[in-house]
Every structure is written in C-alpha cells, then in structure tokens.
Lab assay of single mutants.
Amino acid sequence: MATDAALRRLLRLHRTEIAVAVDSAFPLLHALADHDVVPEDKFQETLHLKEKEGCPQAFHALLSWLLTQDSTAILDFWRVLFKDYNLERYGRLQPILDSFPKDVDLSQPRKGRKPPAVPKALVPPPRLPTKRKASEEARAAAPAALTPRGTASPGSQLKAKPPKKPESSAEQQRLPLGNGIQTMSASVQRAVAMSSGDVPGARGAVEGILIQQVFESGGSKKCIQVGGEFYTPSKFEDSGSGKNKARSSSGPKPLVRAKGAQGAAPGGGEARLGQQGSVPAPLALPSDPQLHQKNEDECAVCRDGGELICCDGCPRAFHLACLSPPLREIPSGTWRCSSCLQATVQEVQPRAEEPRPQEPPVETPLPPGLRSAGEEVRGPPGEPLAGMDTTLVYKHLPAPPSAAPLPGLDSSALHPLLCVGPEGQQNLAPGARCGVCGDGTDVLRCTHCAAAFHWRCHFPAGTSRPGTGLRCRSCSGDVTPAPVEGVLAPSPARLAPGPAKDDTASHEPALH
C-alpha cells in the first residue's frame, strides 16, 4: 500500500513536468492505449483535445483523470512512461527518471493478473537440437547421386540401376557391380574402391570401400567397409609401409569409374585409389579445392560414357583410347591431361624469361682521411668538412668512354686558381681547403699541381719545410723540376691526363 501511495503522490508531483515534456501524442498516448491504461473513449478524447488546445494541455488533463483511477493503472502508467522508446522521444523525461526514488519498484506484477504457477513436473524439458533432418536429407541425396545420367557406350558392359529405396527402410541396399565389389548404403556420403591386398588381414578377392557413415545421432565417422563389417581407420595404420605414394595433400579420389555407378572395369580391371599401398590413418579432407572437384561422367573428346580416367587438374575425364597418344593402361600417381600440362608450361616460361635485376654498384670503404676530388669540390665554400675520421664509401662506377685530351690552356685561363699578391707571391683563392683534413686555415699551394695542403698533414714525420718551391706529398717525388717562383700557373702540358701512381689516385688537379 505504501508503494501505491508513493506512486500516486509522484504522479501528482510530476504531472506538469510530464505534460510539458510530452510534445507529441505518439508514441506515449498510443502505448498507453495498447497496454489498456487508457480506454478507447479517453484516447479519442485526448486526441481531440490535443487538436484543440495543444499537446501539453491534453496530457495534463489525461494525467488528472489518471489520478482518479486505481493503483494498478497508475503503476502501469509509470512502466509505459519509462520505456526506452519514450525516453528517446521525450528527452525531458530523463530528469524525472533520475529523480525517481530508488525504493519504488516498478517491476512488480499487476494485482489480480498474476499467472498461475505451473508445477515443475509438468514443464517439459527442453529438446536438444538434433541433426536428424540433415541425416534424412543426406539419405535422400545419396540415391540421386547414384542414378545414371545416360546410357553407357556399346563397348562398356557395366550397366546398373540402383533400385529405389524407401527412406523408412534401415537395411542396406547393395548393387552387384562384379568382381566382388559392393556399394555402400544410402547413408554413405562418398565411396572409393580399395584393393584388398592393401588391407592387412583381408582374405580372398574381397575389396573394401572407404566410406563416411552418417549415424542417426547426427555425428559422422569415417571407416572402411569390408564385406558386411565396418573398420575404423586406426586398424589399417601401417607405419612400416615404404610404398606409400601419396598425392599432394591428398584424400582418396576415384580416378576410374563407370558411368552411372562406381566400380571396377569389366574384364577384371581393378579400380585404383589416388594413392597406392596401405590406407593412410588420417582421412581428413584435403585443403586443395581441386581434389574436391567432381569430374564429368562423359569423355571430353567423344562425349560418351564408359570407363573413364579423370584428370587431377580439371573436371574433365577421358577414354584411354581417346587420348593423344592413347594409353594402354592407367598410369600410377597423379595424372593430368594435356591442357593442364600446357597451362603449367605456359606459367613457367614467362618466369624464366623475366630479366634479372641489375646488381647495385659495389661499394668499397675508403680509409679515414681520404676523399675523392669530387667530394672536395662539392663541399660548401668557406666551411670545414665535419666528421673527417668517419669511413667514407667510394662507389665503383662504370668507366666513362675515352675522351680526347684536354686542349692547351693559356696562363690567363688559370687566373682564378691563384691570386698574385703585391710581391708576386701566389695566394690561395677563397674557399681553398686541405685535401686531407678539410680545413682551409693557413693552407699552402703546391707549386707543381696548384693543390691546397697543410705541410703537417702531408709530411707528418716532421720534415723541414723548404723556403721556396713548396710541393705536396703527391708531387714531391716527381722528377720534373719545380717552376720558378712567381709564375702564375704550371705549363698547360702538365694538365694533360697521364698515368698516375697508386698513392696519388685520389689527388687529381682540382679547380677552386
């Protein structure tokens, strides 16, 4: 009773807030009518008042009428009001819900409408889902798969039609296919003929059939049928067999079959498995989609049935006599038709004709302190090069084509190399640097090759510096006499390219 009084008091307290929050009759008014909170006449009256005075006034009048009803109607109103779709449509209802007392429970059932309790003993237990329907569909599909699609060729003596089998029958139906081979029951999904010589313990000319048996419980189990008994694959494991010639990621696949039913060829011909030897223990289905393919039931050349050999690369099948050149017997292992072999060759040939990528240039590290003349020119003028003790990398590039010797140069053309002071002394051009340390401070000019250098860098042994005729380390061993002091540049003949010694390969005349 306390809860009923509290709900009535809360409705009177929030009546105006609810009326202002509800700006549309749908969905709240319609939901109240659906849950029998508002009768039909009051529903029509509220809609009429909404058209006349507006939605807030109409709902305020409806809530005032609701306060005169019993506690069950008020409880049902609060339940409908706080439904998710009403809270989404009328956003101003959320503060009312947040301020609702926590001790007021809106989930209690309506009085007088409590459903009768059902004894637990009368409640049926839930049924577990079964796979009976899938099993029945598999039974119905198996006879259809064994139905012949056409008439065999005159040369083929193997013609068999499976008798119709009602689904209610649980007995196995067997077809006489000759040579002791028996087909599987209607619940078998796949059958492959297997030679009895590969099964340990088999006697006589009995041949087993590799099947997948579907049981009534819905589970499946792969086994071997020899005669009327089934054997699990673990009985046929043979770890010492060295003649297993397995197909790549293979499961067994029928390579020879008669049109209309699988079996042995007439005249004692023995149908073979995809792999010879003992049956392997793992009978998992292969991951290669080509091995799941269903080959055609007629020859791809003459479009006739009979004894066919199936290609492992495509769905086509052929007569042995229709092949070019014809085959006398079934080859062992994987067999592919000429079209598949030709496609494989065409895929391999473009790969062989692809040009080989060019090898990157060989990189040879230079000892610290040495650099090529090109690196000396590329440096920024007026700045010493940083990191001189790091190992430089010199790339061996292809030799350029031989060019004509340089033409003779006048001494005026070499004027930018040297600057003559007032006393006739050779001065260095701006930006000249030593080729060893890279520093341009207090550098000297070689009178023979006009290269800038430090005496301490080229002659670290402490050799005394002569007063005139300074030469760098590369030119100090040259027998050519030094030019007379005061000459602007060496003779043009000295600039012609010539053979250089091994220790002077990195010091070429550089223009500054």
Rank of each mutant, 00 (worst) to 15 (best):
A142C: 10
K164N: 15
P176N: 04
V226L: 11
P115R: 07
F43W: 02
F230N: 04
D36T: 00
L62E: 00
A246N: 02
K164D: 00
F26T: 04
H60Q: 03
V206C: 05
E229Q: 12
R9T: 03
T16V: 02
P233L: 04
G260K: 06
K253W: 13
P162Q: 15
K222Q: 11
K120T: 15
P200I: 06
A33T: 04
S185T: 15
G150D: 00
R132V: 00
K253E: 05
M184D: 00
T232A: 09
R257S: 08
F215K: 01
F82A: 00
Q69V: 01
S187Q: 07
K245C: 10
L87G: 04
S217M: 06
L128F: 14
Q173L: 15
G201P: 05
L66D: 01
L29P: 01
W65C: 04
S64L: 01
A191F: 00
M194P: 05
M194S: 05
S234M: 12
S196R: 12
R92G: 06
A140P: 15
A152V: 12
A258M: 04
I209K: 02
G268Q: 04
L13R: 14
K245S: 03
G263D: 14
A31I: 03
K165T: 00
R9I: 02
L93R: 02
I96Q: 00
V20Y: 06
L255T: 04
E137K: 01
A265V: 11
I96A: 01
G267I: 12
A134Y: 09
A261Q: 12
P254C: 13
A265G: 09
L106D: 02
E17D: 14
R257W: 06
S185V: 03
L255P: 10
K50P: 00
A261Y: 12
L97E: 00
G263V: 13
P162C: 14
R8A: 00
K221C: 09
G150V: 07
A160D: 09
L146W: 14
F215A: 05
V80C: 00
P95T: 14
L93E: 04
Q44R: 07
E137F: 14
R132D: 03
W78A: 02
E40L: 03
H60I: 03
A134H: 05
I74L: 01
G218N: 02
E167W: 15
L175E: 01
V37L: 01
S169Q: 03
K221V: 06
V123S: 07
L97Q: 00
R12C: 00
R190T: 07
E171F: 15
T3S: 09
P39H: 03
K243S: 10
L32C: 01
G204K: 09
D105F: 04
G251P: 01
P119D: 08
H60V: 01
A58V: 03
A141E: 15
E137N: 02
D84M: 00
V22P: 01
V118S: 08
L66M: 02
S71W: 01
W78V: 01
T72W: 02
P109H: 13
P233D: 06
I211A: 01
K222G: 04
R8S: 03
S195Q: 06
Y85D: 02
D238F: 10
L122T: 06
D70F: 01
P166V: 09
A261F: 13
G228F: 03
K259N: 10
G201Y: 12
L66Q: 03
Q57E: 06
G208Q: 13
A25F: 05
S239C: 12
Q57C: 01
L62S: 02
V104C: 03
D41C: 14
S24C: 06
G227V: 04
F230R: 05
V22L: 04
R8G: 01
P162I: 15
T3I: 01
L29T: 01
L210P: 06
K42S: 02
K259S: 09
V37M: 00
F77V: 02
L87N: 05
K221W: 03
K161E: 04
G227N: 05
P143V: 09
R15D: 03
E137Y: 15
A145N: 03
K222I: 02
P148H: 09
T16M: 03
H30K: 06
T46E: 14
R257E: 12
P126H: 02
L62T: 01
A138H: 03
L122C: 12
Q212L: 01
V206W: 03
A117Q: 14
L63M: 00
R89P: 00
L7A: 01
A33W: 06
A2V: 01
V199P: 06
L75G: 07
P163I: 11
V104I: 08
R190D: 03
P266C: 11
N244Q: 13
Q189C: 02
F59K: 04
S239M: 15
K111M: 00
A141Q: 13
V192A: 05
L7N: 00
P252V: 14
R247S: 09
P148L: 14
A141N: 04
Q225W: 05
K253L: 06
V226F: 08
D84N: 05
V80E: 01
P143W: 12
R272W: 08
K131V: 02
A5M: 09
H48G: 02
A121S: 13
K235P: 14
